[in-house]
C-alpha cells in the first residue's frame, strides 16, 4: 500500500527535510519524490510505502497536516488508490 503526500505552498528552507522526517519517524519508506518551484510557489508529490507504517493512516495524515499548519503549507495525505481509480482504466 502506498500513500501520496502532496505539499503546496510558498517555498521555504527545509520542506523536504521536515516532511521526510515525519515519514522516517513513522517508518514509511519514500519511493518517489517530484518537486517543482514556480515563482516561489512550491509543489511536491511524495509517494511513500505505508505497509510498515508505525501509526494508522489517519494518524500519519494528522501529523503531516499539523506540520503543514506549522509551516504555512497545504499538506494532503491520500491513499494512492484514488489516483489509480481516477486516472487509469
Amino acid at each position: 500500500m502506498k500513500a501520496v503526500i502532496s505539499v503546496i505552498g510558498t517555498d521555504t528552507v527545509g520542506i523536504l527535510a521536515k516532511v521526510s522526517d515525519v515519514c522516517f519517524k513513522n517508518n514509511c519508506n519514500i519511493v518517489d519524490v517530484t518537486q517543482k518551484v514556480l515563482q516561489e510557489y512550491f509543489t511536491m508529490i511524495m509517494i511513500v510505502e505505508i505497509d510498515q507504517c508505525a501509526v494508522s493512516f489517519a494518524e500519519l495524515s494528522d501529523q503531516l497536516n499539523r506540520l503543514g499548519q506549522e509551516m504555512g503549507l497545504s499538506i494532503h495525505t491520500m491513499h494512492e488508490d484514488i489516483f489509480n481509480s481516477m486516472h487509469r482504466i
Binding site: 501520496v4 509543489t43 491520500m78 486516472h87
Partner: peptide
C-alpha cells in the same frame, strides 16, 4: 507509479478548488 505528477495535482485541485 501509474499516475503522473499532473494527475495528482488535478485530483487535489478538483477536491480543493
Amino acid at each position: 507509479m501509474n499516475y503522473s505528477y499532473q494527475d495528482v495535482l488535478e485530483t487535489i485541485n478538483m477536491i480543493q478548488q
